[in-house]
Design a binder for these strands. Structure first.
Length: 571
DNA sequence: TACTTACTAAACAATA
DNA sequence: CTATTGTTTAGTAAGT
């Protein structure tokens, strides 16, 4: 029926109308979520370091190193910190979810975000981790936090996990006590400041409009970011991101658990085993909060302009992020129907997909397109496409035979993928027009919106702008961490921008008109055209040529990372 | 129900 | 000969 994971625009409306969540609150959620994202990433890095250290230390232990005990205690300290972080994340998220399920939130009430304010600031965390991981483990460190050797989690925690299990009770009012703390960046949302308003800038993803005074900002907020398809879509995507982060969180916790178990750290660890389940409880919680609201979520997609503005229908519903989404071998179509720009999703969930073996909810065609568009020259060899898949999605590090076959199949099958032969072989390009063509979306709804959609090629740009913005805000290094030191993000962004800008004037805004006086193309670019019976007038020009003609041999830094860890996928 | 799209599997040809 | 790359066909699931 409906894919549980997302909320329909209708739902959004319901929610907003009933003031279950004010836009501000949603935005808050969004912010929280972004912070979470950041932390998640840091967590991951931390893990990495930890694992390395762990390894080293295990070796040392085997060799009967004398420092052993010291090291181990430090190690434990590290774990402790780790655990804390996880718990904080969890708690924070719990909060978010609760808020989503909260019906009693006053529209104008400011949300405390206290979990964020308390020790959750990335900077602080980083500092913490630096302390823990950096210095090769001095006891003094532990002194700062706790003098214990084992994992005493109770003391140093800036955020005592107090209401860890109270969530049930928090259902109603909870927010009431806002433990604020000055100095934190994220919390002080006094009634006159707005979470979406910072430093004179509208912080709505992708907006960044500047305002002198708060009033004009509010005006802007209501005008530009009113409840419309776009906002709804942005919100929806965000919800998904949140869900996936939850998943990731669960995984991380599991990992932590395993690590601890491995080290035989019993200690005062709060609740070892049941942890991974918290996620579930979170979900159920948010679900149960508003009694019996059906977990609707929708098959709608960000690019579906159809329904969003139809109000009414069902009773007050709530955003129900029924996570635990099917990760299985299922065929999920999700958003592809009207599909397209997976970029936004990928953008923000990249970290997630890169590490979690979750099947990305995009069609092969979308993914392939994305891969190609991300490449500097908008063309990739089959193998490069493979590499992109394995690089970007943990999921595709398995069952290579299957998905590779699917990739080839898609390449061959869809007209939107054009094979171009050059000297060194063949590369695949995307015929954007074809790609757009192949999903007839029935557009209905407000004409204005429709127009908007047309001009922007759907929500892709809008959403991606949002995500780019949020990523930028969070300073998420994204790709830079991996060996992808290349312009992935940038190219993604620019690809999107191109979509946006060049959509109408379909000239080859394709980046490089940069073959001014270059020698004639070395080899004829054979373009194998897929059976194209008719529509000769459709694209008057050899469109495919447009996309590929800018192939500049001397501009090849694409390969660098492609080949770097090229053969990771030999399965 | 009929039609369409997407995924998977697999056969097969061409090529490296 | 083997592996890779492409093309096709077929069956299934799911959405419209």
């Amino acid at each position: 029926m409906m894919t549980p994971q997302v909320i329909t625009p209708q739902q959004m409306q319901q929610i907003l109308q009933h003031q279950v969540l004010s836009p501000q609150q949603l935005q808050l959620l969004l912010q929280q979520q972004q912070a979470l994202m950041l932390q998640q990433q840091q967590l991951q890095e931390f893990y990495k370091k930890q694992q390395e250290q762990l390894h080293l230390q295990l070796i040392q232990q085997q060799h009967g190193s004398k420092q052993q005990s010291k090291e181990v205690s430090a190690q434990q300290l590290a774990f402790q910190q780790q655990l804390l972080q996880v718990q904080q994340l969890q708690q924070q998220h719990l909060l978010s979810l609760q808020r989503q399920g909260l019906l009693s939130i006053q529209p104008n009430q400011t949300l405390p975000l206290h979990s964020l304010t308390q020790g959750m600031i990335p900077a602080e965390l980083q500092q913490l981790w630096k302390e823990v991981t950096n210095s090769h483990v001095k006891e003094e460190n532990s002194a700062t936090n706790n003098g214990h050797r084992g994992l005493d989690l109770s003391s140093p925690s800036p955020v005592p996990l107090k209401n860890h299990n109270q969530h049930g009770s928090t259902n109603g009012q909870y927010i009431s006590h806002s433990l604020k703390r000055e100095g934190s960046v994220l919390d002080d949302h006094s009634p006159h400041s707005h979470p979406l308003y910072g430093h004179g800038v509208c912080k709505w993803p992708g907006c960044e409009a500047v305002f002198d005074d708060f009033q004009s900002f509010l005006k802007h907020l209501n005008n530009e970011h009113a409840l419309d398809d776009r906002s709804t879509a942005q919100c929806r995507v965000q919800m998904q991101v949140v869900q996936q982060l939850e998943l990731q969180l669960a995984k991380d916790k599991e990992r932590l658990q395993a690590m601890m178990t491995h080290l035989h750290v019993k200690s005062t660890e709060p609740k070892p085993t049941p942890q991974p389940l918290n996620l579930v409880s979170n979900v159920t919680l948010s679900k149960t909060a508003p009694e019996a609201s059906p977990p609707l979520s929708l098959p709608q997609t960000p690019t579906t302009p159809t329904a969003p503005l139809t109000p009414l229908s069902q009773t007050h519903s709530v955003i129900t992020p029924t996570s635990l989404h099917s990760v299985g071998p299922m065929r999920r179509r999700y958003s592809d129907k009207y599909n397209m720009p997976i970029s936004p999703d990928i953008g923000q969930n990249k970290e997630f997909y890169m590490n979690a073996e979750v099947r990305p909810p995009f069609t092969y065609a979308s993914l392939i397109r994305q891969a190609i568009l991300e490449s500097p020259e908008k063309q990739l060899t089959l193998n490069e496409i493979y590499n992109w898949f394995t690089r970007m999605f943990a999921y595709f590090r398995r069952n290579a035979a299957t998905w590779k076959n699917a990739v080839r199949h898609n390449l061959s099958l869809h007209k939107c993928f054009v094979r171009v032969e050059n000297v060194k072989g063949a590369v695949w390009t995307v015929d954007e027009l074809e790609f757009q063509k192949r999903r007839p979306q029935k557009i209905s709804g407000s004409p204005a919106l429709v127009k908007n959609i047309h001009t922007t090629l759907g929500y892709g740009p809008a959403l991606s702008a949002a995500f780019q913005a949020s990523m930028a805000e969070n300073n998420i290094p994204l790709y830079t961490t991996a060996s992808i030191g290349s312009p992935t993000l940038n190219s993604l962004a620019s690809a999107i921008r191109e979509e946006m800008n060049g959509a109408m004037d379909h000239g080859n805004s394709n980046g490089s008109d940069s073959s001014p006086g270059r020698s004639p193309l070395p080899a004829m670019h054979h373009i194998s055209v897929k059976e194209e019976p008719l529509d000769p007038e459709e694209h008057e020009g050899p469109l495919s040529l447009v996309t590929t003609a800018n192939h500049s041999p001397d501009f090849d830094h694409n390969r660098d990372y492609e080949d770097d860890h090229g053969n990771e996928d030999m399965l």
